[in-house]
């Protein structure tokens, strides 16, 4: 898959710092963004002529907290990676920009405890109403 035009477009749209962190992830691209500039980068992406949709948002448990991955499809796959230092740390919500983010942010919130500031209805999506054990993906196995 030829992702060069996408890399150039991302460089133009989101600035040099973002395109500098661009690297390949299998057949697709990955780019690290700091939480402060996430909304600007996403806005730039959404305005690109080849923008298609936000596929999903993945939470991944990392060494220093939770990595939140935003998987986009723009004729080629692009993932934005945002590092969330503590599980309960806050990220800006994409919902005002992109309604598609609604349920995906709710899922990352309930499974990893990440707060999305500006989300209109940040409640559980899959877990039962009486779930009290905290975000299940953070739970570690008993030794």
């Amino acid at each position: 898959m030829n992702t060069d035009p996408l890399a150039q477009a991302l460089g133009r749209a989101a600035g040099a710092s973002c395109s500098a962190s661009l690297r390949s992830m299998g057949t697709e691209l990955l780019c690290t963004v700091d939480s402060g500039s996430l909304l600007d980068v996403v806005k730039a992406l959404v305005d690109l002529p080849q923008y298609h949709h936000l596929s999903t948002i993945t939470g991944v448990l990392g060494e220093g907290g939770v990595r939140v991955l935003y998987h986009f499809w723009l004729g080629a796959g692009l993932t934005l990676e945002v590092l969330c230092p503590a599980p309960s740390a806050a990220l800006p919500s994409l919902v005002p920009l992109l309604p598609a983010a609604d349920w995906y942010e709710r899922e990352v919130h309930e499974m990893f405890g990440v707060q999305f500031v500006g989300h209109p209805h940040l409640v559980s999506l899959f877990l039962p109403d009486d779930w009290t054990e905290g975000p299940p993906m953070l739970a570690r196995e008993e030794p």
Binding site: G26, S55, V60, W73, G77, T79
Partner: peptide, 13 residues
């Protein structure tokens, strides 16, 4: 490593 795979299932991506 990490990777994203996409296919066209009967209901879409």
């Amino acid at each position: 490593g990490e990777v994203v795979a996409r296919i066209e299932a009967p209901r879409g991506e």
